[in-house]
Structures are given as C-alpha cells and as structure tokens.
C-alpha cells in the first residue's frame, strides 16, 4: 500500500461493543483493535459472539452500546462500503438459481464495480470453469471460493472472514492461508474467525480471543501461547530414574508422561543437557515444547465456554 495512511493506522477499532438478544448478552463491552499488515485471528468458543461482532462491524446488527470505526469512520458513513470493507460472513448468502458469475455481477453492481473486475476475481479464485453453473450446484468449497471472490470485489483495504476455511479440502485451506497472508503482506487489514486452531496458529500473526462476549486477550499469537501455556523441556532417555533424581535435586519439576518422556518445567533445554552430561546419562531426545494455540485457547476460554459437554476438561498436555 502506497497511500497516505501507513501501516500504523488502525483500521478496525471496536470499542465497548455490546449486543443483547432478549435477556442474553451476546457481546458484552468488547473492545479491541485490528492492525493492518498482519492476519488477525478472531477466536472464541461457539456462541462467544464472534459472528455477532463481525455483523456489527459491517452494520448488519445494531449494537446496544459501543461503537466500531472502520478506516476511521463508522461503517454507515462509507460511500461505497464494499470498496473499503470486504466481508465474507456466510457463503450461503446467494440465490441458488443464479450462476456464480451472475451472483458476483449482482454484488458488484451494488457498488458500481465493473464486470471486468468480476471476471478477474473468477480467475483469481479458480472458478472460471464453473462460472456459468448455478450457485446451488456448487460444492461447499466452491461456494467458499465464490464468497472470497465476493469479498474481494471492491479491492477493499479491510477484509473480514467468518470461518473461511469451513468445507475446504486441505488444498483449499492451504490456498486460503496463502491468500490471507498475501493480503496482509499487501498492507491490508485482515480479521478472520476460525475454530481451526492449529490452522490459526500458522495463519494468524495476532489473535483476538473472546469468550461469552468479552475480550479474553488480544495480541501476538506467539506471546499468547507463551504467556498462557507452560513451556516444558521434553527428555527421552534410557536412564530416566537417575536423571529425574538429578533434575529434582537441582530444583526442577519433573513429570513422567505416559509415553515415558520426562517433562521438565522451570528450566531450559541447555540446562537439562548439562545435568544429563554430569550424571553421565545418554539422551535420545531433547526438545522444548512451547505449547500450542489450542492449549492456550482451552486454558483461557474454559471458564467462558457457554455450551460445553459436562465431561470436557481443559487440555492439560500439549500435543505439539
């Protein structure tokens, strides 16, 4: 992006946003900001208020309190909104009897966007071959692609995606990830909700985590994981008993995992290696486990999960 507002301008500012449906408060005094140039993951358990928040950003739901600024203005003041904010909130919002091309032309004409741009996007999302097919006959993955194309029509500097990877095969997921990262690299502001946490761990530079309509945390994905999960040094050794004793004597906490690995907390891999050398034990594996986004997410949102099976428990061990 070469224009006036640089990468530092905050393009989505949500402040004190509140939405009630009857007695239920779906979004409760939510505040966060989304920076341009990075992919921001919008995470939260089902019913946390992610979709409602996104709908309020584009003016589809009216907040009971609070405000949203996009590109420095309320959404309602944008002249041709699709040229500023591209949103894919539900890929099912299309007339099933229209062709993919007609659907895009219809959306484009709402904001005076050209037919050439429609063709360009059909090519970009790989739907040119099926552009004449009825939307109702497209697979879920193709519909998601159509939705992506729709969001991009106005070449917007702000992109919102609600679960864009739903229904996509691994290749499609890879493609979406590349697109999202590409948009961020171009300096756009990208907010994407997803429940695919391992996917978000790769895709999102920053996260906004909400639970029961409230902000739990926001900031860099890496910081979030490191802050929330405990890093552990994992050791595999044939002399587990002696090493455990040595480590404990040195003041470290050691847990034996079911697979026979020792998990050492409160130290570094280097220190564990040194201690192993001192007591003459052979190490088969020595690595640091930083915890996963999933683990961080489960730990922070456990209390805020509204719809939960009674047997569910927070993930205590990482799988990374």
């Amino acid at each position: 992006m070469t224009e006036a507002r640089g990468r530092d301008a905050i393009l989505i500012i949500v402040e004190g946003l509140t939405k009630r449906f009857g007695k239920r408060t779906a979004v409760d005094g939510l505040s966060f900001a989304v920076r341009p140039g990075v992919v921001t993951g919008f995470l939260g358990p089902n019913g946390a208020g992610k979709s409602t928040t996104m709908r309020m950003i584009v003016g589809l739901d009216r907040p009971a309190a609070g405000s949203v600024l996009v590109d420095g203005r309320p959404y309602a003041e944008l002249d041709a909104p699709l040229r500023t904010v591209g949103a894919l909130l539900d890929a099912g919002w299309a007339r099933s009897r229209n062709s993919a091309r007609t659907h895009l032309r219809w959306v484009a004409s709402l904001n005076g966007i050209s037919r050439e741009r429609v063709e360009e996007l059909l090519r970009l999302v790989g739907l040119r071959e099926v552009a004449g097919q009825r939307v109702g006959t497209l697979s879920l993955g193709m519909r998601q692609r159509l939705g992506m194309a729709m969001a991009l029509l106005g070449d917007p500097r702000i992109l919102l995606f609600d679960e864009p990877m739903n229904g996509l095969d691994p290749e499609g997921i890879h493609w979406v990830r590349g697109l999202l990262r590409g948009f961020a690299a171009e300096g756009r502001t990208v907010l994407v909700s997803s429940h695919l946490l391992s996917e978000m761990a790769i895709t999102a530079d920053e996260v906004v985590v909400i639970g029961a309509g409230r902000l739990i945390t926001s900031g860099s994905t890496r910081d979030f994981i490191e802050r929330t999960t405990r890093a552990a040094v994992l050791v595999r050794t044939p002399g587990g008993a002696r090493l455990t004793e040595t480590l404990r004597r040195a003041g470290h906490q050691v847990d034996l995992r079911p697979d026979g690995t020792l998990a050492v907390t409160g130290t570094t891999a280097a220190r564990v290696g040194e201690l192993a050398a001192e007591c003459g034990e052979v190490l088969h594996e020595l690595r640091t486990d930083h915890g996963s986004l999933e683990e961080a997410f489960m730990r922070t949102t456990y209390d805020a999960v509204e719809y939960r099976a009674t047997t569910a428990a927070p993930a205590s061990e990482s799988t990374q």
Partner: peptide, 15 residues
C-alpha cells in the same frame, strides 16, 4: 490486484 482505492471516497462512486 488493482491498487487500493482511498477508502471509497476517490475512484468511481457506487452504492
């Protein structure tokens, strides 16, 4: 991709 237009204020109108 086309260049980003100035927040919808420049470029062809619409809406």
């Amino acid at each position: 991709m086309r260049g980003v237009e100035g927040g919808g204020t420049s470029g062809p109108a619409g809406g």
